[in-house]
């Protein structure tokens, strides 16, 4: 039953990925001839033709496309024009950098959002609730590239506390993680607060109160457990959005992840790397979605697939 469900999901995802790769294949080919970027301006026509032949660019587009698909089936993802090595290696090297950043940012924002959202819902209309509401709205409304720049301005240029870009020490993590957290945190607080308020109004909470249970235990033990399901749903969508944030954050902070690689490769017309990056990202998102579905079953025993 479960396996059948995952199989069906995998089938749909493979269809989506193939559709995406096809679209990207033809779109990137429209951006122009890479030989214009990779050979000296005064190189001869023969040299250009040789370059095109070497990289298979002299074939008609549809031939190139079928060649690409055939190579995909044998796990050959092409070679990076820029780095002269397997494109999938380039993508897989950058991927863990983004993954680390995303996992840290997502974990922190989920934990923080659950705490803040639950406390806000415990006393609706209180000062804490209103401040939390405004902060979460502001978090979801802030342009990430701008807050990153303001962060650099204040903490790197002004106070000299944090590095402007790069990786290495723990200090390098602070600004990228914070910027990446803002949006998911803001949206999640609102979701947690909303579901918690309706959960706290339900009869079983009244029963728990009547039994004389401790308030903290009711909020975090009873109500929260039932409010986690919508949170998990939104967290799945936010993961896709997180990659958007990663593109911006990695560009500004010079983080060598998948977002920066993607932008660099598009600009350098390094087609094979663009496609490999997309493939890796799409597979990662697919795995996250499956994991979320499995988490559902764990959280709510009523759900079956």
């Amino acid at each position: 039953m479960m396996l059948g469900y995952i199989g069906r999901r995998a089938y749909h995802s493979i269809l989506s990925v193939i559709g995406l790769l096809t679209l990207v294949f033809f779109l990137t080919r429209l951006t122009g001839d890479p030989s214009a970027l990779y050979l000296p301006l005064d190189s001869s026509v023969e040299a250009r033709e040789a370059f095109a032949r070497l990289n298979g660019l002299d074939q008609p587009l549809y031939v190139q496309f079928f060649q690409y698909l055939r190579d995909l089936l044998s796990f050959d993802f092409g070679e990076s024009l820029r780095q002269h090595r397997s494109a999938i290696d380039v993508a897989l090297e950058a991927f863990p950098q983004t993954l680390k950043l995303a996992v840290v940012a997502m974990t922190l924002s989920i934990l923080l959002a659950i705490l803040v959202g639950a406390l806000a819902a415990a006393r609706p209309g209180s000062l804490f609730d209103r401040i939390a509401g405004l902060v979460s709205l502001a978090g979801a409304s802030t342009p990430d590239f701008w807050i990153a720049i303001v962060g650099i301005l204040v903490f790197a240029v002004g106070l000299g506390l944090l590095p402007t870009s790069g990786t290495g020490s723990i200090l390098h993590w602070i600004m990228p993680v914070f910027v990446l957290m803002l949006r998911p945190f803001g949206l999640l607080v609102q979701v947690v607060r909303g579901t918690m308020i309706s959960a706290l109004a339900s009869p079983y909470i009244k029963t728990a109160h009547a039994k004389g249970m401790k308030r903290r235990k009711i909020i975090f033990g009873h109500a929260l457990r039932n409010s986690l399901l919508p949170v998990v749903t939104v967290a799945g969508d936010l993961t896709t959005g997180l990659i958007n944030g990663a593109v911006v954050v990695e560009t500004i902070f010079g983080w060598p992840g998948i977002g920066k690689l993607m932008i660099d490769s598009i600009i350098q017309r390094d087609f094979a790397v663009v496609q490999s990056t997309i493939l890796v990202t799409a597979i990662a998102i697919f795995i996250v979605n499956i994991a979320i579905d499995l988490l559902y079953v764990g959280l709510d025993p009523r759900i079956r697939y």
Binding site: H12, S13, L15, S16, G19, L20, V24, L27, T28, L30, T31, T240, G241, I243, N244, V247, V248, G259, M262, I263, I266, I267, V274, I278, T281, A282, I285, F286, N289
Partner: peptide
């Protein structure tokens, strides 16, 4: 399926590729 494809991929990346093209 079209909605799935668009939804399952980071919109900014897709927009970057399309706009660059």
């Amino acid at each position: 399926r079209l909605a799935d494809v668009i939804m399952s991929f980071p919109s900014l990346l897709l927009a970057l590729i399309v706009l660059y093209t």
